[in-house]
């Protein structure tokens, strides 16, 4: 009986507009995943309203705790740790998950683990395949656009990030101009496949030798183009607009990421975050990596589409690594809405 005991983690995620619980075995296997989404609610307002989000989270949190345990066919005695996203995100929303997880930990005596939401997004890859380190991740979502170096399962460093809008944010903003309902990413991606890059929008900072991004110039160019056409009563092809916008975003992301791969020579390349569900970006990154000399090609892990958005499974995966590294939280754990992964030393001026 020398076989290692299974480690089961019950995880919570409530940083934005999804309330989610999951039971994850050994950081790799999803035994249950419950996601209660509020999209229908926030669509009324054209974007996430924080107070409304918090009100929805508290409505379901105890119920989906039971559901996650039931669906995994386990009880509290089978759980080795309780994990929760404590930042970054909307503070009121985060506090529901944090309060629930702490209360659960107190009531059961099961240890608590606080998880960085971005680390969680990146670790969605671990639910798909084994990550070999060092690894490099392109993390793209509504709030973040970052290139992250993973030295090992718990030491992550940002080597580049956005100076203004995140890529996902830019998608939502141009979506509004095109009259696409929030969240816009999926529709823009689909339209992009129907159109051509005819507008040649700017690729900001693409040739700079750092790994930072900027998407506000692209967003402005897009909006100006649409406004100008409006003024002269010209109708633009929405598919071409979407294709041109997406091509500019993907060009910059791919270009910088490939350069980072060449410099850091990771064993694994990972994509994470909501925009990692974008087919254009997935295809392009795979194609660019395939062009590298065989010896320089990292293993590519693209998480399942349904695990790119916010979910507790990814939090459970990341928490498993923290568990193995003995990184536990105590009952003073608080929400940290502006939590950030550390920046690589060389990036500090």
């Amino acid at each position: 009986m020398s076989e290692k005991k299974d480690i089961r983690i019950l995880a919570y995620e409530s940083s934005c507009d999804e309330t989610s619980t999951a039971v994850i075995r050994n950081g790799r296997e999803i035994e249950s995943l419950i996601v209660a989404t509020q999209i229908k609610s926030h669509q009324r307002f054209g974007g996430v309203v924080p107070e409304v989000a918090s009100r929805h989270h508290i409505e379901v949190v105890s119920q989906i705790t039971k559901e996650a345990l039931n669906e995994a066919n386990c009880g509290w005695k089978d759980i080795d740790a309780i994990a929760v996203t404590y930042g970054p995100g909307l503070v009121g929303a985060l506090l529901i998950g944090v309060s629930a997880a702490k209360a659960a930990s107190m009531a059961t005596g099961i240890p608590l683990i606080g998880v960085d939401h971005i680390m969680g997004h990146i670790m969605a890859a671990q639910l798909k395949d084994e990550i070999e380190y060092p690894a490099l991740a392109l993390q793209v979502s509504g709030g973040h656009t970052e290139i992250v170096l993973l030295k090992d399962p718990v030491h992550f460093e940002i080597i580049g990030d956005t100076r203004d809008d995140a890529a996902g944010e830019a998608y939502d903003k141009i979506g509004r101009v095109l009259g696409v309902n929030y969240p816009a990413g999926k529709t823009i991606d689909a339209w992009a496949h129907e159109g051509k890059d005819t507008f040649n929008f700017p690729r900001a900072m693409m040739e700079d030798d750092d790994y930072d991004f900027s998407f506000s110039g692209l967003k402005s160019a897009f909006i100006n183009t649409c406004h100008h056409a409006d003024q002269i009563h010209e109708k633009l092809n929405k598919y071409d607009l979407a294709a041109s916008f997406q091509a500019a975003v993907i060009d910059v992301l791919a270009n910088k990421t490939i350069r980072a791969i060449k410099q850091y020579k990771p064993k694994t390349f990972i994509m994470g975050g909501g925009v990692a569900a974008n087919h254009g970006l997935r295809d392009r990154m795979s194609a660019e990596i395939a062009k590298l000399p065989k010896a320089d090609q990292p293993k590519v892990i693209l998480p399942d589409i349904k695990l790119c958005g916010d979910n507790a499974a990814m939090i459970g995966a990341a928490a498993y690594n923290l568990y193995n590294d003995n990184q536990f939280a105590d009952l003073t754990l608080n929400a940290d809405p502006s939590l950030e992964l550390p920046y690589a030393k060389s990036m500090l001026n």
């Binding site: 419950i34 209660a36 989404t37 509020q38 229908k40 929805h56 409505e59």
Partner: peptide
């Protein structure tokens, strides 16, 4: 409120 939240 419950009408606006869906399990997916």
């Amino acid at each position: 409120d419950s009408h606006y939240v869906e399990e997916v």
